[in-house]
């Protein structure tokens, strides 16, 4: 990019502006505030409600085994968990992957986490009790703990993830998917899939579903830092299904600007994990593309088709243009 020259070097924001990079202030003021009504936040923040809504609309989600709502239920934990060898415990109002505990297997009353740590039943109980008291929820409001199906991710991703489940984050604006990336956990991110916690972000081509560019800690990388797996060139299966699913999530909660987190299960295919009402800043680094041109284009459209396949087609057109 030659135009601009010294001015771009003097004023880096001019360059960012031309690249169409969306900043946090602009995202909050122009997209989150106008398109996401406050009253709908609870549908997104409460994973239990999101899940219920998704089931109603037939969007596949990881199965919910049990909900722990009150301290008293912790005493019954072993009975409650008896049928399940592996499961995930997560706070219903958690954010940023905090408070999620993945149990891989268990033997005589001890639970083995995927990190290899072994927990006693008391440890697990304390963790759930912390969740209930609101340790992981915003503002410390009392929460409930969800115990759900542990996703066996698609073997396609084994090479690019370390201790955790990689997921696909798709930003959806006015019901049209606009950008996608894969977030792969690393040793640094401790199994979590958030970029600012040290996960790897991999840009995905919206049209073909092929990965093409990796970033880790805001730097470009070619290989996964822990496993050494090649990041580019992975072809995400069921890509159109995934886009369709993301587009439908918009209809489900009625918010105009959301991030949809989807995991690929080996047996069950794409499952919707959770929604996010404030997505989309790091994704621009992973895809090496600014969100603004696409968002502004869609914002300018008088009407967005109601039909989901048409919106997926529109998503590809938009991605192709900008």
């Amino acid at each position: 990019m030659k135009a601009g020259g010294w001015k771009d070097r003097m004023f880096p924001w001019r360059r960012l502006r031309r690249l169409g990079i969306l900043g946090m202030n602009e995202r909050n003021a122009d997209f989150v505030l106008p398109y996401n009504p406050r009253s709908l936040y609870q549908l997104v923040d409460d994973k239990r409600r999101t899940k219920a809504l998704a089931i109603e609309l037939g969007i596949p989600v990881p199965r919910l085994y049990a909900v722990v709502e009150i301290e008293h239920q912790i005493e019954d934990l072993s009975r409650l968990l008896a049928p399940y060898g592996e499961f995930v415990v997560k706070p219903s109002h958690g954010s940023g992957g905090e408070g999620i505990l993945v149990v891989e297997s268990r033997s005589d009353g001890r639970y083995r986490r995927c990190s290899g740590l072994v927990l006693t039943e008391e440890d697990l109980g304390h963790h759930i009790s912390n969740i209930l008291s609101g340790m992981y929820s915003l503002g410390g409001i009392p929460d409930c703990a969800l115990i759900e199906y542990r996703v066996n991710f698609d073997p396609l991703f084994t090479e690019v993830s370390y201790l955790g489940v990689p997921d696909i984050r798709i930003v959806v604006f006015r019901g049209v998917p606009v950008m996608a990336m894969i977030r792969a956990p690393t040793r640094l991110s401790d199994g979590k899939a958030n970029l600012h916690q040290g996960a790897v972000g991999v840009g995905v081509d919206m049209i073909t579903g092929r990965t093409y560019n990796g970033i880790w800690r805001e730097r470009r990388i070619e290989e996964h830092p822990d496993t050494g797996g090649e990041l580019a060139g992975i072809c995400v299966p069921h890509w159109d299904d995934i886009l369709t699913m993301a587009a439908r999530c918009n209809d489900m909660v009625g918010m105009g600007y959301i991030g949809v987190d989807i995991v690929l299960d080996r047996d069950l295919g794409p499952l919707m994990l959770e929604l996010n009402a404030r997505p989309g800043l790091s994704i621009q680094l992973a895809t090496r593309t600014g969100l603004l041109p696409r968002l502004r284009y869609l914002e300018g459209l008088r009407e967005i088709p109601r039909d989901v396949p048409e919106r997926v087609a529109l998503a590809k057109t938009v991605a192709n243009r900008f």
């Binding site: 880096p12 924001w13 360059r15 960012l16 502006r17 690249l19 990079i21 900043g23 946090m24 202030n25 602009e26 003021a29 122009d30 970033i215 805001e218 730097r219 470009r220 800043l281 621009q284 680094l285 090496r288 600014g290």
Partner: peptide
Amino acid sequence: LGRYTGYRLLELWRFRGALKG
């Protein structure tokens, strides 16, 4: 400032990857 939609100073650092590209 409540309607300021420009970049934050530290975002210039955060997006430095994009600036290099």
